[in-house]
Design a protein around this nucleic acid. Structure first.
Lengths: 207, 207, 207, 207
DNA sequence: GATGAATGAGACTTCATTCAT
DNA sequence: CATGAATGAAGTCTCATTCAT
């Protein structure tokens, strides 16, 4: 539905805001369009003017959140030049956004997976986008001789997975208190995994 | 629920087998008790004789699958003595079971997460159990001086997360063709991440 | 839905009875499944156990009514041997059934037409069946030399149409008081239209 | 509703044109005001400026179509003097209009009936108007001694019904290819039904 | 014990109608 | 005048759960 009036645009955003709250609280299936409408201070019909169906709300939400997350990542990376520092900045940016918006974390880490078949390909896309960002930095690091050649596809997925798991268990358990603290413990593992000495951020010499 | 007679026991298992097929194909919410009944060659009433509700089927299935997986892990670890080798054996055992039963992988990696609030605490438990197995081996390795002291809680979660991600992306994309191949690429990363030279499986000397 | 228990069969019929009442009173679109359920002393779910959707209820009703009407026609025709008398008997049988069950008349004459695209081919079938009965008798009459050769396809449709119109205007206006009276006035027209002198039921000699 | 300005009048007609297309394609209930608005190159609000509700659009359309049809009939009858020839001219005029505008035929023959209770009395009126035209000619023919006295009310309805049926089955089946061909076969039946020899258009002498 | 049948709450979705700009 | 936007009632259908045989 192409929206033309500014009032409508605002309501469109309000619906997505409400959807984020509801979906992340109840999960996709247990969320009702009625509740989203209520929280968005609009009516069921108002929702269906902007979205063709419930699935589309979820996808739009996912897309908006992904775009915002990627923007934050770009911004964070821009302030670094060293590829490893850039990769780190990306990870930290993700962590910070999720730490600030736990609902968003739940959306990406939990609900998006189990919401149904229809979302899997979209989620696979999103996961790929994030992994690819890390992968690109790893390849640049290899090119610059900062790290030894490795299988960057697997490595980037492993980094991404490690981060995911930390976030997910935080979503479920609430530990650590400050999600960002987790990064301090995770960082040396990630660095060493690609052959970097985490103290010097310099390669570990092979024996 | 209380099952004693052999006929009943057999039907109970048949229901779980059917449930695994249906849940992993359609996801929790889109699976109907009717379809499970059909695939288990019984009736809706028959299901409700054995289980109080749909949720209980899913939980019983999760429990059975977890127990079987843990048994496989125990068995695999029993043939190793070196703690790092034991940890590796555990990871490989998980990978092999999932590689053989993709439905099971989907159940654990995808459906269990998004099935709804009710399952989250149970899933958190299960994740902890797996991470704890790895954590114990890491601690033993530290005790034996094989690796330097590290934050084993974070490290074990990171290992688990990396493995998860590899499995999940395999579930979604079907790549790599043989899931076990992924381990070959993953292993050096994991080893190095805890400060082991993957070629010698010996510690990387700090500079 | 295959029904096995006698209780279910009875309810199936009760649903159709209720559907006839509701559809003929409100029309297809303005009838709600809820109201049919209420009138059938069952629940919405009960209806959907027996029928896959609202359309199927309507079609089943149409089929049952058609079968009953055709049976009445067969019965009425069986008591006559002369083809013209048999055709007349068929028309009168239709008239009598509709006169007795005005709801049925409304169903066939009004609701079935406007219920929607999906019903058109079924209705065309039904119309053909009725016209074909008359057509067969006309052809037999020609074969026996009772009437002159005519285009029996058009003639049977014309007879059927004339009858329809009389019934339809009765459905709408309630005139004549007794629908069967209409036949007395219609009969001579029909007879003459195929070249029979209505007084003698013998052919009108061409000049 | 009150339309005076030329721009408004033109839009009013455009809405009716669009409504005819939409209603005859989808039926009354499955037509949405939105689609009519789209096809009329206006907006929902634009429609509701001209019509108080959807029903009013349909009725206005019915009225406009009826008026045009009656005008065609008048025109056709004007060129004849013999009452039987005039009746025939009327029937042929109807047939020709419908043959040319199948959408119109569908509107009158199918949608108008099943559109709902609200339209029944209006449709009864319209049917009466058509039947009355034929009835008047029949009475004139009787007065002039061209045909024997008959029940003109029933006879006119029978003629009208026969014509209806031919048109309806053409709407549904598309046969005959040219609707006008149907009249050739129908004419002798109608003539004979009122006691006219179709070859000479002269009365059939009673024996 | 087991099965087919029934229930009923609740979900999504549509759309005629109204309203604000 | 016209449009896009919003409303809200109502409808069909699903399905976990319960019940009667």
């Amino acid at each position: 539905m192409r929206v033309q009036q500014p009032r409508a645009l605002e309501r469109y955003q309000r619906i997505l805001d409400a959807a984020l709250r509801v979906f992340s609280r109840r999960g996709y299936h247990d969320s009702s369009v009625d509740e989203i409408a209520g929280k968005a201070r609009t009516s069921k019909g108002g929702i269906y003017f902007h979205f063709p169906n419930k699935e589309a709300i979820f996808l739009a939400l996912l897309d908006r959140a992904t775009a915002r997350l990627l923007a934050k990542i770009d911004e964070a990376m821009a302030s670094q030049t060293d590829p490893i520092a850039r990769a780190e900045a990306a990870l930290l940016a993700v962590l910070r956004v999720f730490a600030k918006h736990r609902a968003l974390a739940r959306l990406f880490m939990v609900e998006a997976l189990g919401a149904g078949r229809e979302f899997h390909s979209r989620m696979a896309d999103i996961r790929s986008q994030f992994a690819a960002i890390i992968q690109r930095q790893m390849e640049e690091a290899i090119r610059q001789g900062i790290i030894q050649p490795i299988d960057t596809e697997v490595a980037s997925h492993a980094w991404f997975g490690a981060l995911n798991e930390v976030i997910t268990s935080w979503v479920f358990s609430g530990r650590p208190e400050r999600l960002e603290d987790a990064y301090a413990a995770l960082k040396p593992l990630l660095m060493q995994s690609v052959g970097l000495n985490h103290r010097s951020d310099r390669p570990v010499p092979e024996r």
